[in-house]
Design a protein around this nucleic acid. Sequence first.
DNA 1: CAAATTTGGTTGCCTTTGCAACCGGGCGCG
DNA 2: CGCGCCCGGTTGCAAAGGCAACCAAATTTG
Lengths: 218, 218
Amino acid sequence: MPERCPLFSRLSKEQLRDALALMQAQEKKYARGEIVKNALDPLHAFGLVLEGRVAVSMEDIDGREMLLSQVGPGQTFGEAICYLAEPSPILISARTDARVLWLRCEGIKGAAEDELTRLLQTRFTAMLARRTLRMNDRIQILSRGSIREKLNAFFTECARDAGGPRFEVPFDRAGMAAYLAVDRSALSRELSHMRRDGLIDYHKNSFTLHMQPTKGGR
Amino acid sequence: MPERCPLFSRLSKEQLRDALALMQAQEKKYARGEIVKNALDPLHAFGLVLEGRVAVSMEDIDGREMLLSQVGPGQTFGEAICYLAEPSPILISARTDARVLWLRCEGIKGAAEDELTRLLQTRFTAMLARRTLRMNDRIQILSRGSIREKLNAFFTECARDAGGPRFEVPFDRAGMAAYLAVDRSALSRELSHMRRDGLIDYHKNSFTLHMQPTKGGR
DNA sequence: CAAATTTGGTTGCCTTTGCAACCGGGCGCG
DNA sequence: CGCGCCCGGTTGCAAAGGCAACCAAATTTG
């Protein structure tokens, strides 16, 4: 399963074993709702989700929870904090029953003695770089003024990832609202309107875009 | 000057020279308002701002500009895109007259032959990790519902960085509005109200917080 | 199966804020 | 000196959307 993560993809069986050993991989199970990392806890390893879904959030002063990201199978969380070995106010919890593989990054921090370590270093950096780009996308979405604009941006991105106008979103409505930083009921309202206007169709988490293939370039 | 960047800090003169050579450093000057990188242009190197300020933004379909970040002396832009060698719709322009040192990252991508290369690799990764954390902060700010909440979060962060309740922000009002993704006039209005309410004081870009050391939750 | 819980949709109300227009001060430049 | 430009603040207006309350369907639990 770990090979679903770009960090470990296309490794031979032996390489994978060595890589996991190098990073002192340890699997751990969590029940739905369980806290994976409390705010202010340090993080000695970063997590690779093998199964289930995990939410990364921050609690603000008023106790409102802000969703930073939601992590599914093959995706990771906490690399940056773990790499920098900094404390962080981030709260991580399991949204469903989940299996997480914890990976320490000391092994890929210093000088690389062998080929495999070097590969992992490079891939780790690439992972961080890709994460940066995804966060840019998120910031772009959040910067939009209206809910409809946010949804358009969000859907466009989903469609790009899915490679077509039909896709499933990894959120329930409440999660989606948190991701877009809007009110849940307002989100429902806007989704209804967009359906009424013939822009989209949806059922549960499955969405279909009816957008015209944007004629002009951006 | 490059030693203001964490990538090059505390290097000997020879190391710095070698490092710059390794990354094929090239300095370039830009006039205020000049385009540094147009949307869709590829980026063969990332930029280290030596002097002046540079804005990283994205133009959305309606032509509205969304500010992703603003980069000052000693800070870098475009590392992720450059490292991944991906095209990107990002637009970069000089907000003031500026000097930029372009650094290629091929040299620090593959296997590291010498000590210096390894150091640069590690530091580059650390830079990306720190950038990730800063983007998290930004997402946190953007996720707030009201302008006042956004400002509180923003100011809190500024105060943390500055180590005290007085600080200067690196934006003019329009830039600040773009950073917080709110309307400029609404921002002005809210700032006035916060001053009226005794929460802050400000003149031009200098702000002073008068916040009580947050006692209880709401 | 019944009860309870979760999830998504609807609606009315009212605040916030985007928008547009305008004003005034500071600064640079001819 | 005077003109234009940039920047920041103000304000009236209208719309968007947060909030709360509620309902219906779906899903889980006993």
